[in-house]
């Protein structure tokens, strides 16, 4: 029953929404509108699940004094503090919540993303070697695109940016389309398998 009920719901709703796609009648549209609203509510509850999980995970770490348990206190304190600040003083543009968000959260997030530049430089230096024909082609196109998309690329040759644009729009797009087509079929097959109950890994393990 624990597995049969979710499978039954998945099958019924999957087939219903597939059928609904082909019926433009107002009754069908009303049905889909109700379902969408239910999905919005369910997804909001998934957040509650995530928050509960976070609290449980970190309180367990604190209780057991696992490795770096002190950081768990910082995580929980930050979460509770922001919730209290937002609920008490609001989330308007000039609120404390917004000030903390823009002056703490935003720079922290930006810092983490900025690390990418260092890793990219290090990876490019370490691994971008022309070991084979394919690797040489990869390197050459990387150079062309990098120079072409830089502002002064146009000063090296007026047609350089157009050539870089061509590399992105023709060979790059062609190969991406091929992969995208395969990925699309994979997605359709997986969706069909989930609706028909053939694919059950989302329930956790096999029967």
């Amino acid at each position: 029953m624990k597995r049969k009920l979710p499978l039954a719901i998945c099958f019924i709703m999957g087939i219903s929404m597939m059928v609904q796609f082909f019926i433009p009648h107002p009754v069908s549209l009303e049905f889909s509108s109700v379902i969408y609203k239910w999905i919005i509510v369910l997804m909001a509850f998934a957040l509650v699940l995530a928050i509960g999980n976070l609290i449980r995970h970190h309180t367990t770490k604190i209780r057991r004094k696992s490795i770096d348990w002190q950081y768990s206190i910082v995580t929980l304190a930050g979460m509770v503090a922001m919730a209290i600040i937002g609920l008490t003083w609001g989330v308007d543009p000039d609120s404390l919540y917004q000030t903390i968000y823009l002056n703490v959260m935003a720079p922290l997030g930006g810092t983490m993303f900025a690390l990418l530049a260092y890793y990219m430089a290090s990876a490019a230096y370490r691994a971008f070697r022309a070991r084979s024909l394919e690797a040489t082609l990869l390197l050459a196109s990387a150079f062309i695109v990098m120079i072409g998309f830089m502002p002064f690329g146009q000063y090296i040759h007026p047609r350089f940016p157009a050539f870089a644009e061509w590399v992105m729009k023709v060979p790059n797009m062609a190969s991406q389309r091929g992969i995208l087509l395969g990925v699309a079929f994979g997605s359709i097959a997986t969706a069909l398998k989930i609706i028909l109950g053939i694919e059950r890994s989302w329930l956790g393990g096999k029967e």
Binding site: A121, A124, Y125, L139, F143, M146, I147, M150
Partner: peptide, 20 residues
């Protein structure tokens, strides 16, 4: 960003010269 692109290209060239 343009400066970084030049630096990365320079290091790629260096790495490949050394490799060859």
């Amino acid at each position: 960003q343009s400066m970084i692109h030049i630096l990365i290209m320079a290091f790629i060239i260096l790495g490949n010269v050394g490799y060859f």
